[in-house]
């Protein structure tokens, strides 16, 4: 925590220094936009490096969590520098407005991502199960296979197809793939309630032996619920970058274009 506070303080001091510098330049009838713009471009470039760093995990370039911390702090610093550079919340001129839109959207997606990065890992821990995202299909397939095996065994041993019919009509849908995605994102318990309801409906029609199988199916369903939670939350954790990174890349392109235009038109 102390380290985070240290980084934030450094960023804040950096911003204050740049602000004072630009003020001094303004007061001496200079072009402070070059200083604030230069600082902003430097910070944006640093933010961009994080993506490159992730592609080079073998290099000893600081651990990723530190990069992420710095990326977050620098992101907020970039927002402050952007306002300092533009002199307003919304600049004038089409291409600068496109640049501002991209910058704001990138920042907004970054903030949403940050919120998820802060909340979802706790939620994932609370699930009480660890899952590798890429293996979730495999895990679901395994659970489905087990449940189908239990249903077959139940039908064979008890001679009743009540559970099997019910599985085909309702539970099979659940085991097919991850379900209740939206509800899981917000930490809901719809999937759990649904399973309980489905089992409760059926329970009075089952005999003792079938109930034993039903319990085992329920246990598998509970694991599946946890995996579904993992799937939903991890999907969000991974997919917000599908918005953030392309927007950041586009903003970077526009920033470079802005640099070119400034060099050509105001050299």
């Amino acid at each position: 925590m102390r380290r985070i506070f240290g980084y934030i303080s450094l960023a804040f001091i950096f911003f204050i220094l740049i602000s004072v510098w630009t003020l001094k330049i303004d007061n001496s009838l200079g072009y402070s936009e070059f200083v604030s713009g230069g600082a902003l471009f430097f910070i944006i470039s640093f933010l961009f490096l994080f993506n490159i760093r992730k592609r080079l995990p073998f290099l000893p370039l600081w651990p990723a969590h530190k990069w992420f911390l710095l990326h977050t702090i620098m992101g907020f610093l970039a927002l402050l520098l952007f306002w300092l550079h533009a002199g307003s919340l919304w600049p004038k001129g089409l291409y600068v407005q496109i640049l501002a839109s991209l910058f704001y959207l990138t920042t907004l997606s970054g903030i949403v991502g940050l919120i998820m990065e802060k909340i979802y890992p706790n939620l994932l821990t609370r699930i009480g199960l660890e899952c590798i995202y890429e293996r979730i299909p495999h895990d679901i397939a395994k659970i489905r296979k087990k449940s189908e095996k239990l249903i077959l065994e139940c039908t064979e041993k008890t001679g009743s197809d009540t559970l099997a019919k019910h599985y085909l009509e309702t539970l099979g849908w659940f085991f097919q793939r991850p379900r209740f995605f939206i509800n899981n994102i917000f930490g809901g318990r719809d999937s759990h309630n649904w399973i309980i309801q489905q089992c409760a409906i059926l329970e009075r029609f089952l005999n003792e032996a079938e109930r034993e199988y039903m319990k085992q199916i329920f246990t598998l369903a509970e694991i599946k619920i946890k995996i579904d939670h993992h799937y939903s939350l991890q999907t969000m954790l991974k997919n917000w970058l599908l918005i953030h990174i392309p927007l950041a890349a586009a903003a970077m392109v526009m920033a470079v274009w802005h640099l070119i235009v400034i060099q050509v038109y105001f050299n």
């Binding site: 001129g93 274009w257 038109y265």
Partner: peptide, 10 residues
């Protein structure tokens, strides 16, 4: 016109 990619503002 409206679409000018070097328009720095009115």
């Amino acid at each position: 016109g409206l679409v000018s990619v070097s328009d720095a503002g009115p």
